[in-house]
Design a protein around this nucleic acid. Structure first.
Lengths: 390, 390
DNA sequence: CTGTTAGCGCTTTCAG
DNA sequence: CTGAAAGCGCTAACAG
């Protein structure tokens, strides 16, 4: 029925082993034989049987990418970046020994070595949508483990509970033990995995400081869903800035060991999903609680846009009546009216780096953990309050 | 090293065959034995070896999803919807004999064959980012074929050239021959594949008609990249509407057999990528060519937002000075200022349906092809021109 | 450089 | 209902 490697071997008049060798290109084969085999492959329209080869070689060319919401550009951008690194291996065999160098520069000798792969196998990036569910995250990890994935990249915030954290750690340990490389992109480190963490706390702190410096004193905070690391870190940064200015924040996150989710949230903080609708609702709620608010800090850009819509509908002008800030700096943020002041996270660059780490194409950072800087982007949605001070 | 099915069998005191049967649940096994096996699986923390089982069973639980741009919500939404259908088969045991029904309505028999699994294996949806490159599309299809994917869903516009069309058709034929189900979502039919096509032409025609009815006569068109089916269809709809109103359009797409890409584009049409930047540039270019333009029709919402930004920067008011329309109705479109008049494509619903078709969980439409309706969404970015008529 | 020989871990008839 | 045995298609030592 379907054509196999044996068929190719027969047609080329060689042994199956030889065909395998020219196909994986990791072993010297006479040029003439090689050509003959390639012709046979072509004639027969042969396509390797992935499962069979994965079984025999005890490895696969699958790389898993877990995202919380594939419809959200935040994840789309990272996923795309990760995947962009999955093409045929550029680096020559010289890098096999971990002497690696940064991409972009001259690559030194194209040491094909005794048997440099003509072209390292193309990796198949598979992105899996967890919908933010810790359960599905674990399920996908098992599925990936079952496929003997070469690597797994987990993107975005993690569930914040100790229970999930532990289960995840166990799963990661098992994956790593099975030879799967695990890299985290945008979430806190886990033993055994490489991690690229975003400076959510620092970015948030500086953003709120910007508002405070402008003169705002009553600022509302629209937080993301509780029980997510990113939500917590951004909120902590915000509260830290308030505290530094001596503002009463009832900051739960600042009590060491305190569980922010369990504690009563400060009056000017409201939680919601990372989407536009919840930004809209939260803005209404906050303005209801405290009509004197002059600035709204949103958990991310999407939420901020929802908040802007709400303010507009209330007849309030941005930033004249109320300043609004986002987080992430997604492409549309610069385009909003007014352009959104936000914190830029280098999503694409981070994703690309994570992809390289997953493939072992980049030297891991010391300790296996690197912090990605967040940069303040001040645009038109923030301005001094009409009546500065309180 | 890694625990295998044989280990489980040993621990449960049964044969490997029995373990296999319990795990795939497609064969009667005594309840007691079953429980013992399950316990052993649990104790040993056993995870099936995907490749091995795929090899032996000659099928895999991978489903491929090809997208042109994973960072674009247009694709993210569809991909998420498709993936949402990949969970464990919903149909209960009663359905084992194929008496089942699709979720959401009686669908006749869901031919599961004589021995449907109690719980169909969870499918692993793998989304692959082609970046709009026909080459990569073919490459991914080969990769998926190599993995013996259970199904493949191709989303969004296809490359429009006859050469690629033919190569794609050949590839699809091969996949189908190998038992992979192929479904198209948002692109024209291909022999052997199921197709859900969007009514791009009709939607575009009605959208432009809306503008014409409002009184616009000089309307610029910002087209997507040439050589893409979606680009062509939307442009054709636009030109058809102009022609129906007796407006000189120099419509290349209306000459039967004419190659739109090769022909000189009408003066008020400019092509660009499906992104914001190109919308911005195109708007500038069109206004330069024809300052009298009173309406701009963009290839999609993202492009439209770019155009809006350009108009704003020129000091033009929307819709007072210039009306703007988009296409797709992505979530952010309702939020733009002003809210965008556009054409709504039921992306999520279409994706979900495509997912069900890919899994054989829904009866295919007659002829294997269904047209998805596009709905006009008139909001605030369109209004009559200041000086109606020409 | 190339052929031979064993499996990789699981599924699946075919007999009990 | 359960076990035994025969591969699925490919890779990886080993010998030539």
């Amino acid at each position: 029925m379907t054509v196999t490697l044996a068929d190719v071997a027969a047609r080329a008049g060689v042994s199956p082993a030889t065909v395998s060798r020219v196909l994986s290109g990791n072993y010297p084969v006479a040029e003439a034989t090689r050509a003959r085999v390639l012709r046979a492959v072509d004639d027969l329209d042969y396509v390797v049987n992935g499962p069979a080869s994965a079984l025999a070689a005890a490895n696969s060319d699958l790389v898993g990418i877990l995202v919380n919401d594939i419809a959200d550009p935040f994840f789309g951008i990272m996923a795309g970046a990760i995947q962009s690194e999955m093409g045929p291996a550029a680096p020559p065999a010289a890098d096999v020994w971990g002497v690696g160098q940064a991409p972009g520069g001259p690559q030194g000798r194209a040491a094909t070595g005794p048997a440099g792969p003509a072209t390292a196998a193309e990796k198949l990036a598979v992105v899996c949508n967890t919908n933010g569910s810790p359960e599905r995250e674990l399920t996908y990890l098992t599925l990936l483990q079952r496929q003997r994935a070469a690597a797994v990249v987990l993107t975005g915030s993690a569930a914040d509970g100790p229970e999930h954290t532990e289960r995840l750690a166990a799963k990661v340990a098992r994956l790593v033990a099975a030879g799967t490389r695990v890299v985290l992109c945008g979430r806190p480190p886990v033993a055994g995995a490489l991690a690229l963490t975003f400076d959510n706390r620092g970015g948030a702190r500086r953003l709120t400081e910007h508002l405070l410096t402008l003169g705002h004193r009553r600022v509302g905070y629209i937080a993301g869903p509780a029980e997510r690391t990113t939500t917590r870190h951004r909120l902590e940064g915000h509260l830290a800035a308030l505290a530094a200015h001596g503002l009463p924040a009832q900051a739960p996150g600042t009590q060491p060991g305190g569980d922010p989710a369990a504690a009563e949230p400060p009056p000017l903080v409201v939680h919601g999903a990372y989407d536009r609708a919840s930004g809209y609702d939260a803005a209404c709620e906050l303005l209801r609680r405290e009509p004197g608010i002059t600035a709204l800090v949103a958990a991310n850009d999407t939420v901020a846009l929802g908040a802007c819509a709400a303010l507009r509908d209330m007849g309030l002008s941005i930033p004249r009546d109320v300043s609004v800030t986002g987080f992430d700096d997604l492409p549309f943020s610069a385009d909003a009216a007014p352009a959104l002041s936000t914190v830029r996270l280098p999503l694409y660059e981070a994703g690309a780096r994570a992809g390289r780490l997953a493939l072992g194409r980049e030297v891991p950072p010391p300790g296996g953990v690197a912090m990605i800087r967040a940069e303040l982007m001040i645009r038109d949605s923030t301005a001094p309050p009409l009546a500065p001070g309180r």
